[in-house]
Each structure stands twice: as C-alpha cells, then as structure tokens.
Design a protein around this nucleic acid. Sequence first.
DNA 1: TGAATGATTGTTCTT
DNA 2: AAGAACAATCATTCA
Length: 128
Amino acid sequence: MKTSSRSKGTVRKETKEALKPVDDRKLGKRKAAVKADKKPAKKGKAAKKDPNKPKRPPSAFFVFLEEFRKTFKKENPDVKGVSAVGKAGGEKWKSMSAAEKAPYEAKAAKKKAEYGSLMDTYNKKQLC
DNA sequence: TGAATGATTGTTCTT
DNA sequence: AAGAACAATCATTCA
C-alpha cells in the first residue's frame, strides 16, 4: 500500500521524477545491497561522533515491533535470534492496515516531535 | 569471557 | 532529490 503516507507535505508533487526510483529491494540482503557496508551497531556506541546528537526515535515499525516482540516471544518462546522476530514482525507489519498502524504511527509522530526539539539544540551547537 | 553479528522497516540527516 | 546511517532486540558465534 503505497497509499502515500506522505501527507506531510514535504513533497507536494515533484512531478514524476520520484514516481518510483526503486522498489525492488529484493529484501534479500540489506547489508551490502541497501547500503555499502557499514553497521557499527555495536553495543557500546554506534555513532559517538556528535555528543549532542540525539538518538533517532523508534519508527512506527519499531514501536509495533516492541510490542510484537512480546507477543511473538510469548507464543514462540522457542524462537531464537532477533531475525526471527524481525521477519515475522515485518511480515505482519505489511499485513497490517493503515488503521492498525495508526496508533503506532501516532506514537512515532510524537517521538518525532520530541526529537525535533533535541535537533534544535543539536543544531545550535553545530552552528558555530 | 566478551564483543559482534544478524534481520526487520521507518525516519531522519547529510550531501 | 537521492543516498546513507542508524533506531531495538537477543540468541548465536568467533577468538
């Protein structure tokens, strides 16, 4: 459903240039396919480049995943690995309708608002 | 023993 | 406009 969730207005029309740059991500291996190859998602600190850089708020998908993980693990206590929940969650996420994602998006929207505030502070620091 | 990885999508920043 | 990077989780795995 591309129903376009871009109701934000960021891109009003942009003609047909961004009609669909690429949607065949194949979802096979996001590692090198989606991005070159950089995932310092270590446990310590992934990006400690900027001390004031606020962490990005969890997206609607993450919010849903957070709750989904509990349910999934609860019904599948034998599940091993985060990829299992990730795949299951991603599959279900796509199966969900906009109405179902609404509450999750609402939360994500709120996070974005708070993140915006932090960004303002971060911007001031960067501004020298 | 300890640190790193893998997998999901989304959002946001940076160029 | 387009690309690149990172957000959480947790069992498994390499040295």
